[in-house]
Design a protein around this nucleic acid. Structure first.
Length: 300
DNA sequence: GTCTGGC
DNA sequence: GCCAGACAACGCAAT
DNA sequence: ATTGCG
C-alpha cells in the first residue's frame, strides 16, 4: 500500500506546546499498536487543525487516502460515506490530513447500526477535585456491575472521564442503546442528586457531574482512546485501570500529554488488555429495571 | 490540506 | 489564475 | 420556532 507523503511537516497543529505535523505523525506511528484496535472498523469523525483552530469532518470527497476506506452507511435520510482507518498507513494519512482528534462511533462494520458498547461521559463542574470525579466513576462502575456488566474507564483529556461498557452479543439498535444509557444516567441522578446532574450547564450542574449518555445513538461519537485533544498541552484520552481511580493522583487533563505518552506506554501494561476478550450480552430488561420517575431537576 | 465554484 | 468558502449534525432543554 | 449545550 502506498503511503501518502507528509507535506508541510513543520506546520504547527497544536500551538501549545508547538507540536507540528511531523511530530503528530511520529506519535501516531509510536502508539499504532495500542490505538488501531480502538479504531478498527469504526466510522470516524475527524477534528482537524487549522492554525490551532478546530474544524470537523465526517465525509471525504474523492478517493480515500491510503490506509483509509470510505464506506457507505444508511443513516436516517439516505446513504453517506464515512471514513474508517484500516492500519498504520491510515494513521499516516490522518496525520497528513492534520487530524488532531479521532472520534469514533460506538459501533463497528459490518453492523454500524447496532451499538457494540455504551459510553458514559462524566462531565464535572470544572471545580470538582479528582477524588470526587474518580468516586463518581467508581459509583457508575458499581452500578453497571450490579447490572451484570464490566466496564472500562479512560480520561477524556479534559476534566471528565469516560466509562465504556463493551457489548459483544445481542447488541442493541441505537434507540434501545440510548434508552438504556439514559436509564443509567437517570438512576444516578435520582438516587444521588447531590452528586449527579441530569442536565449540562453550569447553573444546573454546579458542584455535581453531568452524566452525558448522549454518545449512544446513531452517528454520535466519542473521542477514541489514545486520541490527542486540541487543547493546551495536547492531552491524550488515556485508558486507566480501575485501581488507578482509587489513588489520589489526578490523572486527568495534562497528566498524559502527547509528548510523554509513547514512553509511558513502553513501561506500562495495557490497563484495557482485557477489554477485547470480554464477552457480555446486552440485556434491555436489566437496564429497564432502573427506570423510575424522572429526576428532580433541583434548584436552578 | 485540498477541492470547488465564482470572478 | 486566484482566492474565499466548505469541510458535522442532533437530541435535549430552555427561551 | 429558535437558541444553547454537549
Amino acid at each position: 500500500m502506498d503511503r501518502a507523503a507528509l507535506t508541510h511537516p513543520g506546520r504547527v497543529l497544536y500551538p501549545d506546546p508547538g507540536i507540528a505535523k511531523r511530530e503528530l505523525a511520529g506519535y501516531y506511528a509510536a502508539v499504532a499498536d495500542r490505538l488501531l484496535p480502538h479504531l478498527a472498523d469504526r466510522p470516524l469523525s475527524l477534528v482537524r487543525s487549522r492554525d490551532g483552530e478546530a474544524f470537523y469532518q465526517k465525509h471525504h470527497r474523492g478517493p480515500a487516502p491510503p490506509g483509509l476506506a470510505s464506506i457507505g452507511i444508511d443513516v436516517g435520510t439516505g446513504r453517506r460515506d464515512y471514513l474508517v482507518c484500516r492500519d498504520a498507513t491510515g494513521l499516516a494519512s490522518l496525520a497528513q490530513l492534520g487530524v488532531v482528534e479521532l472520534h469514533t462511533w460506538g459501533s463497528r462494520l459490518p453492523d454500524p447500526l447496532r451499538a457494540d458498547r455504551l459510553t458514559f461521559d462524566l462531565d464535572p463542574d470544572p471545580t470538582l477535585d479528582w477524588r470526587t470525579v474518580a468516586d463518581a466513576a467508581l459509583t457508575l462502575r458499581a452500578l453497571l456491575q450490579a447490572l451484570g456488566y464490566e466496564s472500562w474507564c479512560k480520561t477524556t483529556g479534559g476534566k471528565g472521564l469516560h466509562v465504556v461498557v463493551p457489548l459483544t452479543t445481542r447488541r442493541p439498535d441505537w434507540d434501545t442503546a440510548r434508552t438504556s444509557a439514559r436509564a443509567v444516567a437517570r438512576y444516578l441522578c435520582r438516587t444521588e442528586p447531590t452528586r449527579f446532574a441530569a442536565r449540562p450547564g453550569d447553573a444546573h450542574r454546579r458542584g455535581r457531574l453531568y452524566v452525558d449518555y448522549l454518545r449512544n445513538y446513531g452517528g454520535a461519537t466519542a473521542v477514541s482512546a489514545y486520541s490527542p485533544r486540541l487543547r493546551p498541552g495536547a492531552p491524550v484520552s488515556m485508558p486507566l485501570a480501575w485501581r488507578q481511580l482509587e489513588g489520589d493522583e489526578d490523572l486527568r487533563g495534562r497528566r498524559f500529554e502527547l509528548r510523554a505518552v509513547p514512553a509511558w506506554l513502553r513501561r506500562r501494561r495495557d490497563p484495557w488488555s482485557g477489554y477485547a476478550d470480554t464477552r457480555q450480552a446486552f440485556d434491555a430488561d436489566a437496564f429497564a429495571r432502573l427506570e423510575g420517575p424522572a429526576p428532580d431537576p433541583g434548584v436552578t
